[in-house]
Design a protein around this nucleic acid. Structure first.
Lengths: 126, 126
DNA sequence: CTATATTAGCGAAAGGGTTCGCTATTGACG
DNA sequence: CGTCAATAGCGAACCCTTTCGCTAATATAG
């Protein structure tokens, strides 16, 4: 698994689309990403080729039009970005980040229940 | 308070130093940031001037050598970066981030206790 | 099959961040 | 003071990402 990998903003947007809809065409990705912004279709195609180069996505060109799929999972990306964030602004303390997110976000009752369960599990490491 | 503000990597490193030691000199910042890397002192000075321009830091030039202090708080920066992260890779769900950080990080017993307390407080909104 | 539209590829330029060399200013020390 | 060292300032180069125009290849419509 790639160790330190930091997708750029545009790359993240595209990955977001591909996580939701694996096997999307360039056109579909373009429409999804630039629903409101107006960027040229070429830009999206170019970004796809750059990401292909970097190995962030895979292309299936046995079909027409070609389709794309992410090779990095959402989970891996989350992990990489969270640890980067923790390292850089939370002095390496993941729990500090947790506290922060908990108090500033608005978790629902269900969220709280889930987190409580997780906490309980963590308290009995065994 | 500045709404969307995203310090770059180098800027974050410098802010990190200033949060720990407000009123540091350019030399001190340089030494702290580039303890292992070898960058030119001019680079640090230039970055400071850029950050000054952007309003991320403040300069006291009544003293010699001049000293610098962050104008953005660590807390604000954390908030801004966390919400950016949540939005981009956690589909807007802060609790999803919490779960992720909790299970991948290694919280200490004390961390868990604190989080538990916070959770309990959240359960009794009132 | 031909014409038209859509998809694909690529080089180059634009844009922003980072780096540094060079010069000017200020401070320390004899 | 005069010299040498450290601090401060600035433009330009450089690097990486993003953008697009232009051309080629492929699909679709008539």
């Amino acid at each position: 698994m790639r160790q330190n990998f930091e997708p750029t903003d545009v790359e993240l947007q595209i990955l977001g689309v591909l996580w939701r809809k694996p096997g999307a065409t360039a056109r579909a990705i373009h429409n999804a990403v630039h629903a409101q912004q107006d960027k040229n279709y070429s830009t999206t195609v170019k970004m796809l080729s750059v990401m292909l180069q970097k190995g962030l996505i895979r292309r299936d060109d046995t079909v027409r039009p070609q389709t794309f799929t992410a090779t990095v999972s959402r989970r891996t990306t989350q992990k990489s970005l969270v640890s980067k964030l923790v390292e850089r602004v939370f002095d390496g303390s993941a729990s500090s980040l947790v506290m922060h997110a908990l108090s500033s976000g608005k978790p629902t009752k269900e969220d709280i229940q889930e987190i409580r369960k997780l906490i309980e599990k963590l308290e009995q490491p065994k």
